[in-house]
Simulated scan of single mutants.
Amino acid sequence: MRRNIGLIGVGAIGNFLLKEINRDKAHGIKIESVLVRDRRKYESLQSEFNVTLYTELNEFLCSNIDIVVEAANVEAVKTILPKAIKEKDTIIISIGALADEYFRQHVLHLANIHQHTIYLPSGAIGGLDLLQNAQTLGTVKEVSLTTRKPANSLVDHAIMDEVVVFEGKAADAIKQFPKNINVSIVLSLAGIGIDKTKVTIIADPHVDKNNHQVEIKGDFGSATFSIKNNSLPDNPKTSYLAAMSILGTLKRINGNVKIG
């Protein structure tokens, strides 16, 4: 069965998905509809990727789509998700929106009432399957994330040595660095929550990639994951793995074998 996708956002990740899914004709999935603000700006997408453009959310949701994929930003999630989840299963990459407890509970309630699913791709990190399994009995005791990024992505002045720019809980990390630490929220939701997940953010002038180290401790034992992210070839500000995690999520949803 083919799944028809409705895409929100045509930035770096949106363009990656259009190329990988429609241009390369990924098996079993196709982007049919794209929601944009300015139709004229993105008119060429219709012929290039054989999609239909929409500027109105209601028309977009009523189009021939089975699942909505958000690849825009936190503001788009807060505006669009409550409506989208009433009508369709939805994948979101701007997971920082779910740091807001009231908003998170609201959309989860809507998903339950309307019997639709919110999918949260792992983004730029890994190990979430292990963390979720370890937390099945509620016995994970500690989860910490240390993120090391190129200094110029975190501070606006030159530094010679690494500097810890944040140390605290995930709930505060996403408030101070809303565009830099989405990974802390998906990690928190998979594990022990945003108030118990510890986050350290380091600005390092000697690295050119984003590095994430996740440490988990509990009754199961302990685990450590270290991830160094390459950027998208077409956009140095976007994680390649984050973009691939959406594509991977779509393929797993559509597959007959579920791993993990």
Rank of each mutant, 00 (worst) to 15 (best):
E162C: 04
V164Y: 03
V155Q: 05
D161R: 14
S153P: 01
N182T: 01
D172N: 14
D161Q: 14
V163Y: 10
E162H: 05
N180Q: 14
V155N: 04
V163D: 01
S188T: 03
F166T: 03
E162W: 08
G191R: 12
E167H: 15
P178A: 06
I181F: 02
V186T: 09
E162A: 13
D156M: 11
H157T: 07
I159F: 11
E167P: 05
I174Q: 02
K175M: 09
V165C: 05
V183C: 07
Q176K: 15
N182F: 13
A171M: 09
I185D: 00
I174G: 08
L189A: 03
V164L: 04
N182Y: 13
Q176M: 10
P178T: 04
L154Y: 08
N180P: 00
N182W: 08
N180W: 03
N180R: 13
E167M: 12
I185A: 02
V183W: 01
S188A: 15
I181E: 00
S153Y: 14
K169N: 10
I174P: 02
F177Y: 15
D156N: 14
I174H: 07
D156A: 10
K169S: 05
Q176C: 07
S188G: 08
L187P: 00
I181T: 07
S184W: 01
V165R: 12
K179T: 09
I159G: 04
I181L: 03
P178Q: 05
I159H: 08
K175F: 06
A171I: 15
A173H: 07
A158L: 14
G168I: 04
L187M: 09
L187K: 12
G191A: 14
A171W: 10
A190V: 10
L187R: 11
A170I: 10
A173E: 02
L189V: 06
E162I: 02
A173G: 07
L189P: 04
I174L: 08
V164A: 06
D172S: 11
A190G: 04
I174K: 08
S184V: 03
S153C: 11
V165H: 05
S153A: 13
L154Q: 08
K175C: 02
K175Y: 03
V183Q: 12
V165I: 15
G191W: 04
V183I: 05
V186N: 02
S188Q: 05
I174W: 10
A190F: 12
F166Y: 15
D161N: 13
D156W: 12
I174C: 09
G168F: 08
V155E: 01
E167C: 09
D161M: 11
K169F: 10
N180H: 06
D161P: 00
E167G: 07
D156P: 00
E167Y: 13
G168S: 07
Q176D: 02
F166G: 07
G191T: 04
G168E: 01
A173V: 09
S153R: 15
Q176W: 04
D172A: 13
I185K: 06
D172K: 14
P178M: 09
D172P: 02
F166S: 05
